[in-house]
């Protein structure tokens, strides 16, 4: 029993930090690319149980905050999940260009 527990713990620890890509999306790339804006937003959960996806909205708010008067173009979004021992980190990584109209 103890041996199994140790083996399971070692396996779980060895998988710590492994990343899985969920989705990628991108919109049209503009010619003007001087002002790059980036943001990340994440949410932790225990064994994959989530009660809200509001972290995605946080990413949008943060992006808008970095470009209050301009046009946000060339939005490149990665949604990935990183696994830790019994814990998972869901993350949205966004990069875009802020261009004044």
């Amino acid at each position: 029993m103890l041996k199994n527990t140790i083996l399971f713990s070692l396996l779980a620890l060895s998988l710590t930090g492994c990343v899985g890509l969920n989705t990628v999306s991108m919109t049209q790339v503009p010619a003007q690319r001087d002002n790059v804006i980036t943001t990340t937003s994440s949410s932790w959960n225990f064994i994959g149980i989530n009660f809200s996806n509001a972290f995605v909205d946080d990413a949008i708010d943060k992006l808008k905050g970095q470009c209050p008067t301009g046009k946000i173009e060339g939005v490149y979004t990665k949604h990935q999940t990183t696994g830790y021992v019994l814990m998972f980190k869901r993350e949205v990584i966004v990069s875009a260009y802020c261009n004044e109209v």
């Binding site: 989705t23 990628v24 999306s25 991108m26 049209q28 790339v29 503009p30 010619a31 060339g74």
Partner: peptide, 12 residues
Amino acid sequence: CPNGTSMVNVEY
């Protein structure tokens, strides 16, 4: 695409 893109298709 130094001048940008007009259409893009991403497949994963």
